[in-house]
Amino acid sequence: MIEQIAVKFMKWVMRLGRLFNSSKNLFDKKSVNKILVIDTNNLGDFFFTIPSIKAIRKEFPNADLRVVVWKEVAPISKKMKWIDQTVICEKKSMIRNAGLINMLRKERFDLVINMQLDIRKILLAYIINAKFSIGHDIREFGFMLSRSVPLRLRYWPEVYLDLIRPITQKNLDNNITFDIYRKDYDFIERYVKKKGLVKKDSLVGIHPGVGEFIPQKRWEEKKFAELCDILQEKYGLSVLLVGSSSETEMIRRIRDAMKTKCIEVCDLSIDRLPALISRYKLFVGVDSAPLHIATALNVPSIVLCGPQDPNMVLPARKNMIVLRKDVKCNPCYKEEKIKCDDNICMKSIQVGEVVSAIRKMI
């Protein structure tokens, strides 16, 4: 009860502050020279914001564009040519990072765009005290922003592009694209040769990992092992079992459960991964950051989808097959909050169904 009263009082005080500083609600496009994007999403969701960041650059080609990201996302964002500076956030609770907040306040940004669906990041945008701020209206805290945008859940890149529409008249493209540098291609060429892989036309990348946030998206390890054996024994494909360094144990459990031998990759940095995925004949995996890389590179993909609505996380592509079981409890999330404890939707997907889908793609 006391907490609810405190929140209501805080909202009232901040609304009053906005009322007496109405200039914060006036947007002057010509005066925008310095922009900050708060993009402390996990790696997979960061890819959904790429079309919006590119749209900002297109709208303000000469502005100083900086993006705040988590440490694990920084290797990717640093290689994006339309971002002038990546600001690394070391801690998950940004609001407690007084040093970062103080540094951002001193920069006196002309425009701050909050792409994180989090009240704490709305508060951060408010504290930074930019001339103009934009973000989604989360739990009625949008009054803290110069312009709040209603949250309309659909394909995630479109959700983030809603934040750009108030400041541009240009047509917006929701395609996720990015460049791969020549040095990364060269590195991967040496890497795959060292691993004993030469033929590009037979390489299938298996990505069983889902990250740390929604474990319900996992497919069973024993099924991945069986699938890998079938692809190598029956179809003569070269299987690459890929995961992050934190997923090494899972990758090795799958490898140990296999009858055939495969090559495992857990030592590749995330910024090198796009160059590797670009070599695939086929990508097989679940909803994850590597999947979004594969779709951005137009790599043929088989997607195992369960708790989430594929229309929100996947683009419409002819070279993609989505395997999903309609069970009464899916999609079982709302704004990334999983409600169920059992991923029966993933367990219901059988190895034979995946093999049949792969046959159609190869």
Rank of each mutant, 00 (worst) to 15 (best):
I321G: 04
Y181P: 02
C332V: 01
I362P: 02
L240A: 11
S31D: 11
M94F: 15
M144W: 08
K92V: 13
L314V: 01
K328Q: 08
N97M: 09
L43P: 03
L172Q: 13
I119P: 03
L163I: 06
L43R: 12
V192N: 03
Y333K: 14
M361G: 09
P208K: 01
L123V: 06
L237D: 02
P331C: 02
E140L: 06
S348P: 00
D267T: 04
F9V: 02
R317Y: 04
D271I: 13
D186T: 13
I138F: 02
D137R: 12
I88Y: 01
P310K: 11
V286M: 08
V354C: 11
T86C: 05
H207W: 12
L276Q: 05
P75I: 13
Y280W: 11
P315M: 13
A130F: 07
L237A: 03
E353Q: 13
R324N: 04
I53T: 10
W70A: 03
T248E: 15
L314M: 08
G142A: 08
D201A: 01
I214M: 10
L124Y: 01
E264I: 08
S269P: 10
K71P: 02
E247I: 15
R147I: 06
P61M: 04
D179R: 12
M115H: 13
E220V: 08
K360T: 11
G236Y: 15
K170R: 12
F48D: 11
M80N: 06
P150D: 10
Y126Q: 05
D342P: 00
Q4L: 09
E59N: 09
F48C: 10
V242N: 06
K34H: 05
Y333A: 02
G142C: 07
M1D: 14
K325A: 02
G99M: 12
S301T: 04
K281E: 03
E189V: 08
S202G: 00
R279A: 00
H136P: 02
L124M: 12
M14Y: 10
V303P: 00
K360N: 09
M14E: 15
V239K: 01
V303K: 00
V327H: 09
D256V: 03
E3G: 07
N174H: 14
S245G: 05
N330R: 15
F27P: 00
I321P: 00
N343I: 01
K58Q: 15
G209I: 13
L124R: 02
D137K: 10
F187M: 12
M94T: 14
A98V: 15
A6G: 15
K199Y: 13
K328W: 02
K337N: 12
A257T: 06
I206K: 06
P300W: 06
L273H: 01
I101M: 07
L237K: 10
I338E: 12
L276A: 11
I263M: 04
D342W: 07
A55C: 09
K78C: 07
K347H: 04
L273S: 03
V32A: 08
K54L: 05
L124S: 01
C332M: 03
C345N: 07
N114Q: 13
G306L: 04
L161M: 11
I349K: 08
I358T: 06
Q350C: 13
T49A: 15
R165V: 09
R218D: 03
L19M: 01
W219I: 10
C305H: 08
Y191C: 08
L323K: 08
Q4S: 14
G17A: 05
T248Y: 11
S22F: 02
T177F: 03
